[in-house]
């Protein structure tokens, strides 16, 4: 088993190096459990700022329009994802980015 995620993507050496760093970082995030911590933190922030409630309302609205029997989770996710992504407050994104940067700074050999 080798981490070969980046080798299949064509591109210049710099972008493949970038992808390698990215996958290595991702792996470290999972290994250390930091990813789960970040996820938990993000969830908290999104609940606090009302993002979750808002998105839940629009999901409910879609279900109401289509009827419960005609909605599949994957379709529902595909439908509300653009809205969900667009409505994440900038402050939350910045905070998450700062925490990932902090984590990256503590890592050796990346």
């Amino acid at each position: 088993m080798s981490a070969a995620a980046s080798s299949s993507t064509p591109g210049s050496s710099s972008s493949s190096g970038h992808a390698e760093v990215k996958s290595l970082l991702h792996q470290r995030l999972i290994e250390s459990g930091e990813k789960e911590r970040l996820k938990e933190h993000l969830k908290t922030r999104l609940v606090e700022c009302g993002w979750r409630d808002q998105l839940k309302l629009s999901a409910k609205e879609i279900i109401r329009q289509k009827g419960l029997e005609h909605v599949k989770l994957d379709e529902l996710i595909a439908e509300i994802t653009p809205k969900g992504r667009a409505t994440v407050p900038d402050a939350v994104k910045r905070e998450l980015l700062a925490r990932i940067k902090d984590f990256l700074a503590q890592q050796e050999n990346i």
Binding site: H26, Q27, I30
Partner: peptide
């Protein structure tokens, strides 16, 4: 465990597997 997490991270990345 940390070991389990690192293995799972590798397995998830291995597209073939």
């Amino acid at each position: 465990s940390a070991l389990g997490r690192s293995q799972s991270a590798l397995m998830r990345q291995c597209t073939k597997c």
